[in-house]
Amino acid sequence: MSVFDDTRKPYLPDEAATLALGAALAQAVRPGLVVFLEGDLGAGKTTLTRGMLRALGYAGRVKSPTYTLVEPYTLSNLYLYHFDLYRFHDPLEWEDAGFRDYFNPQSVCLIEWADKAEGLLPSPDLLIRLAPEGQGRRAEIVAATPLGTECLARLALN
């Protein structure tokens, strides 16, 4: 498989497009997947997560986990954990917070600011980068493992 097949780069002109990408991802993810979300403040990481959770049938509030560090969601066929490690000063805080336990074959883990716990996190199956481009955002989705490649193959983009 060529490198090209492991990367998708959809353009997201507005918030609705970010939500739609989240919904498409919701159909493609499977339990056990680890996803790193990258992008500066305001790039749309939480919005993308909201789109995913809505499509997975979660109707409640989807908040940024910056202060709580992790927001857990129990869905019909999987657990989704949305992490934000922005406030970490030291990778060892990852261990202290007991977050290792959240990574298991039943859960999908989305991690923002994964570099704050560098070396301690499981390696990602999927890397999603969001960067400003024009008035919107450019998303770059990279598969880093066979599990990630399968997920990307299922991803239906408009």
């Binding site: 560090l69 202290d96 917070a97």
Partner: peptide
């Protein structure tokens, strides 16, 4: 450097 949320 402060491990601000370490339970310890």
């Amino acid at each position: 450097v402060v491990p601000e949320l370490a339970s310890r």
